Amino acid sequence: MKQRLGIKVLLLLGVMAWVLAACAPRSETKAIRVASKDFTEQFILGEMYAQLLAANGYRVERKLNLGGTPVAHQALLAGEIDLYPEYTGTGLLTVLKLPTQSDPGTVYQTVKEEYARQFNLIWLDPAPMNNTQAIAMKRERAEALGIRTISDLVARAGELVMVGPPEFQEREDGLPGLRRVYGEFAFKAYKSVDPGLRYQALNSGEADVTVAFGTDGEIAAFDLVVLVDDKGLWPPYQVAPVVRKAVLDANPQIATLLNRLAPYLTDSVMQRLNYEVSGKQREPADVAREFLQQQGLLK
């Protein structure tokens, strides 16, 4: 009789332990590791993702400012991080090394399917913003040299100094892609700098041309000219969270929470938010929180 009673007690204790574990708040479970690459927009987006998850009960570990695309992608594959913001065009050209395409829906569907098949990674909903690769010049300099398109730039490249992030020299959608589409050429020099210092170098006269992105706040703030990609090198670059499937399977609400954010991220919104950080020197976390609160996504 005592043995039966002991077994019943053990079973009851086991059931109670299971119930308590199931009812435990998410903050007691494994942290969701939110990462970003190494430039302003990524810091803001990474903070938005982290703050949305934290506000909804998830324990979050930030791993922002990891580095360029290869570093962030490999960290995701290695299970060192759980999600980060990625661009559809970068996924298509740099990661998958597929031919460029111009239709945003086709590009998104391609990367979504191939990431799931090759890497077991899931793309959530893309934002309408298009942070396309671009090349920009000071308006006065571009007009003086008669440069309006990338073809015009290539014709005079030997006279010009370009500034940009280190990875632009290696990426398929960087200098190698430009040479593949526009023909062999060389700038007088290429100055590798931290992405946040590109416009400073342009404005100080240290460079004539800069690598730019469609949502950079400095384009409007400094009245820069974005050169026309007249041979269509660059595809659309919509941003979306890329998440490890195992993490999403265990935490399906992550998709719902982060997908709510996507429609709010337009070109004009991201240009404004980026300039709050890069131009006005505000903290990405503060800019992200303020925006989320304004949209009613955070209390």
Rank of each mutant, 00 (worst) to 15 (best):
F291D: 00
S36I: 07
D38K: 06
L77S: 09
N120E: 11
I32V: 15
L92C: 05
G232A: 11
A24R: 14
P263H: 06
L145C: 04
V209W: 00
K191M: 11
P128I: 04
D194N: 14
T132Y: 07
V107K: 01
R244E: 03
V225P: 00
Q74N: 13
C23A: 15
I254L: 13
D82G: 04
P70L: 14
F291T: 03
K30V: 12
V239K: 02
A50G: 14
G205K: 04
L20P: 01
T90Y: 09
V239A: 02
L224T: 01
Q169C: 05
A220G: 11
R139H: 13
A54W: 02
G68K: 08
G89M: 02
R289I: 00
L12W: 01
Q74K: 10
V19Q: 12
E206R: 15
G217L: 01
A255W: 07
D152E: 09
K299P: 08
L76T: 07
T100N: 07
L45M: 13
K231N: 05
T40L: 01
T88K: 01
R62H: 04
T100M: 06
N65W: 07
R117N: 08
A136E: 01
P252A: 14
L202A: 00
Q293G: 10
L145D: 05
M48T: 09
L292A: 05
L273H: 03
L227D: 00
P70N: 09
T256P: 03
L124K: 01
L160N: 00
E290K: 15
S278D: 11
Y199R: 00
T266P: 09
F222K: 05
P195F: 08
A116G: 08
G174L: 03
V19Y: 09
Y84C: 05
F39I: 11
G67H: 11
V243F: 13
L77Y: 13
R141N: 09
S102T: 12
K97H: 13
E47A: 10
F187D: 00
L178K: 04
L292H: 06
P25F: 02
I150D: 00
D194R: 08
Q295H: 03
F168Y: 15
L20C: 12
P128K: 13
D173R: 12
D82N: 06
L11N: 09
A288T: 06
R272G: 13
L92K: 01
I32D: 02
P99G: 13
R26L: 14
P104F: 08
M270F: 08
L45H: 08
